[in-house]
Design a binder for these strands. Structure first.
Length: 496
RNA sequence: GGCCGGGUGGCGAAGCGGUCAAACGCUGAGGUCUGCAAAACCUUUAUUCGUGGGUUCGAAUCCCACCCCGGCCUCCA
């Protein structure tokens, strides 16, 4: 609440409760959205790694929200429904699945609980009734509103003085609102026309205000006081302030609900932040179509601190892919030197973790470490514990791989432990897994193999002109040839 | 208009008063390997931190001014 870094202390000794603002499922998540969940996953993994059991709730906002606060505004869910000619519920289902699929491709751990807004409408109505009883609300033609002066220190999270704010700088103000910062708790449906999603309520048929769901669901599953609330930085000024106001009015207490509010910064490009409403944006799927592996995106996120803006470009992403390939390649080489051991099952088992602490897997991985190994892990721990300083923690990975005083098995154990937090599946990924076939590439894999065989023949016959011609042809087609004791090849990502 | 935040090598990004002639990754350059390449590996790549002042024994780091850029004040991570 102070915008300062403070030492984290959970409410219960060894348990942390986290609520993360999830997506509104009216479209595919763009990679900027995804950055938020990489951050959240890293936070959760670190807490697990430090011995915490984590209860993690992420919500799915499947209630439509108006594009404008006015009655005439269009509902994003309704809009998507029209353009896709699908039922609004199908829209929500479709994009929810797409979102979860993205997360699993990024190797994110499942939250303890997915919480869907439309499953909690009656919880929201009950919550709103309590707000009404507390005297913090008032009724207008358009619905039930929250009076932000009824709560102590409204907006203190935002550091934005309420004076001087230009109400409706970008949108027409609602008639009758007592304060510029007041917001809707319940949106009454317009007299004419019916929305696909609307519910009966004491304030007439309509839909809950956007801020209501997070207060309701976080409290329902995590209690009125929990540890960490995460979200994008764009939520810091409005959404979270409103959420806090609701929490305060509901509990009749000045506490904001969560002890820590953490906000990740945006992924931006030359034109500014990525935004669904701008129309054009990159999705994980579009990256994959170019031949860029999702884990390269994860690495890119980790190479920047979560509170810094990340300047996105395909070139940078491709660079991270190269880095990942080298990491994974080097780790495979280490694996060649070590025979199969029971501890090697751990990285895979962790992928199905639902919140338990990593204490046991860590003790297995880290038993009998040398002082050198210990030092590397301590350094990694120190940086990660410093507000998730991933860009500083990452070099310890390279240092471990190149260390000249550690044997291969110890290196692998250390890397496996670090990867419990980094979540890049470093031991379970081979270099060849990372080279994805770009979607619009002309050759098929078997055609490549055939050309490669031809080239090998030409080489054996010392017909280098012909061999090189084939290599050039493959190169322009997006194929990289790697000769050696065992000749191989891989797809190059297609940029642009 | 109000309020936040940022400008560091070709790119991404750490650093936030001394150990900074600025971590780390990618790129580039040189080398090893190779028929030549690629991949891999090794070495190397900012006397300088938007501009101009100031504070200080000492500033990328603090202060002031200016110039750019982004975000929030509708929904968005």
């Amino acid at each position: 609440m102070t915008r300062k870094i403070e030492t984290f202390k959970p409410i219960s000794d060894d348990q942390t409760r986290i609520y993360s603002c999830g997506p509104t499922v009216y479209n595919y998540a763009h990679i900027g959205n995804l950055r938020a969940y990489v951050f959240t996953d890293t936070l959760r993994r670190l807490l697990n790694w430090k011995g915490q059991t984590v209860t993690h709730v992420i919500n799915i906002t499947d209630v439509g929200h108006l594009t404008s606060d006015e009655d005439s505004g269009e509902d994003k869910m309704e809009l998507a429904s029209q353009s896709m000619e699908k039922d609004i519920w199908q829209i929500a289902e479709h994009f929810t699945q797409a979102f979860k699929n993205d997360l699993s491709q990024l190797n994110l751990l499942r939250p303890t609980l997915w919480s869907t807004a439309t499953d909690h409408i009656h919880d929201m109505i009950a919550f709103a009734k309590t707000l009404e009883r507390s005297g913090a609300t008032y009724i207008l033609e358009t619905g039930l509103y929250f009076d932000t002066t009824k709560v102590p220190d409204y907006g203190s999270l935002a550091l934005t003085p309420r004076e001087g704010q230009e109400e409706g700088a970008r949108v027409d103000p609602i008639a009758g609102k007592r304060n510029a910062t007041d917001f809707a708790i319940w949106r009454r449906s317009p007299a004419v026309g019916k929305r696909q999603m609307e519910w009966m309520s004491p304030w007439g048929p309509g839909a809950p205000g956007w801020h209501l769901e997070c207060s309701v669901m976080s409290m329902k599953y995590l209690g009125s006081r929990f540890d960490i609330h995460t979200g994008g930085i764009d939520h810091r000024e409005i959404h979270h302030c409103n959420e806090i106001a609701q929490n305060q009015a509901y509990t009749s207490h000045a506490h904001s609900g969560a002890n820590w509010w953490m906000h990740n910064n945006f992924l931006i490009d030359r034109s500014g932040k990525m935004s669904k409403s701008k129309g054009e944006f990159s999705t994980l799927t579009s990256l994959i179509a170019k031949g860029i592996h999702p884990l390269a995106f994860r690495l890119m996120c980790l190479s920047t601190h979560y509170r810094s803006e990340l300047e996105f470009s395909l070139e940078t992403l491709a660079g991270q892919l190269v880095r990942l390939k080298r990491l994974v390649g080097a780790i495979s080489m280490l694996g060649l030197e070590v025979e199969s051991k029971p501890w090697m099952r751990i990285p895979n088992e962790i992928r199905f973790s639902s919140g338990a602490s990593f204490t046991y897997p860590r003790t297995v991985l880290e038993q009998t470490l040398s002082p050198h190994g210990k030092k590397l892990l301590d350094g990694f721990d120190r940086e990660m514990s410093e507000d998730l300083m991933t860009p500083r923690a990452l070099p310890f990975l390279d240092e471990t791989i190149h260390h000249d005083k550690l044997n291969a098995e110890e290196k692998l154990r250390i890397i496996a432990s670090m990867d419990l937090v980094l979540g890049m599946n470093l031991l379970g990924t081979r270099r060849c897994d990372l080279a994805l076939r770009p979607k619009d590439v002309s050759l098929s894999a078997s055609e490549v193999e055939a050309l490669l065989a031809q080239r090998q023949q030409a080489r054996r016959a010392k017909d280098f002109a012909n061999a090189d011609a084939i290599r050039d042809r493959l190169h322009t087609a997006g194929v990289e040839i790697m000769d050696g004791p065992k000749p191989s090849w891989e797809w190059r990502p297609l940029l642009h």
